[in-house]
């Protein structure tokens, strides 16, 4: 399905060591423009390390990596301008208002005052938050905050957005609604790179990679993976892969 697709992330032989511990052990993968790429794995499998390297926060130990067409070693400034980021911890400031948060992040990403006003109005209209413009974030319910945080993360129309466990600690209904937003972003042409350990969410991705102990154990579309392992859902795929892996090591 990816013949004519442009790649937006290219990772070749990525290794990240902390002392003797290999958090990322020779990763190789590509992410295509416009797709929703699920980056799955148990806690401690090395997902967060990879995402931090791709965002330019940490330097890899070795490997060739390109993000949005820029080299990870010496073009991190350009990369940062072209990506959005939302972490598992909540990323808006609770003690300032909805509009002030939008203005702050718009400003940080270099939008003009006019653009900020325009996009803020549009965003609040879409999220039905117009009446909450001057309310503190802390007064909004968690689900709303999350939607807003995601909208703010893509306010500057990045080519690519990284979501690091964006739905942690949220009920299934809110999670489902959050995924509607992710689809909308993908429809607008924004590539989505999302880490999660909820296997039901894996079903929503175009392609998923499953990480075990610092390596990519498998990578394909959810339906292909289910077919390959002969199971009905992604949860079982994950369990099979996670169980097989240690046996192979022994």
């Amino acid at each position: 399905m990816s013949e004519q697709k442009e790649t937006i992330i290219t990772v070749r032989n990525l290794v990240k060591k902390f002392g003797n511990f290999k958090a990322n052990d020779n990763l190789n993968f590509e992410v295509f423009k416009g797709e929703i790429f699920g980056f799955l794995g148990a806690n401690g499998a090395g997902k967060t390390t990879t995402i931090k390297i791709l965002c330019g926060l940490w330097a890899p130990t070795s490997g060739e990596i390109k993000v949005a067409g820029f080299d990870i070693y010496n073009q991190t400034e350009q990369i940062k301008r072209n990506i959005g980021y939302m972490s598992q911890k909540f990323s808006l400031y609770e003690d300032i208002t909805v509009f002030e948060n939008i203005r702050l992040f718009g400003g940080i990403y270099g939008l003009s005052r006019h653009e900020i006003a325009h996009r803020a109005a549009d965003l609040m209209h879409r999220l039905d938050l117009e009446h909450s413009r001057d309310k503190l974030i802390s007064s909004l319910p968690l689900g709303w905050r999350q939607k807003l945080a995601f909208s703010v993360a893509i306010l500057h129309n990045p080519k690519l957005v990284f979501l690091d466990e964006p739905t942690g600690g949220v009920d299934p209904v809110t999670r489902r609604k959050f995924w509607d937003q992710i689809y909308e972003a993908a429809d607008r042409g924004i590539t989505v790179f999302v880490t999660t350990h909820y296997m039901d969410e894996a079903e929503y991705c175009d392609r998923v990679s499953i990480m075990v102990d610092g390596r990519i154990a498998d990578l394909d579309t959810p339906s292909a993976l289910k077919g390959k392992y002969g199971v009905k859902n992604m949860n079982e795929v994950f369990l099979k892969i996670a169980r097989i892996k240690p046996d192979q090591n022994n």
């Binding site: 965002c55 330019g56 926060l57 400034e77 940062k80 301008r81 990506i83 980021y85 939302m86 972490s87 598992q88 911890k89 909540f90 990323s91 808006l92 400031y93 609770e94 992040f105 940080i108 990403y109 270099g110 990284f162």
Partner: peptide, 13 residues
Amino acid sequence: ELGTMETLLVSPL
């Protein structure tokens, strides 16, 4: 603590 530092570090600042 809040995790906003990460968001800032990923930004062009």
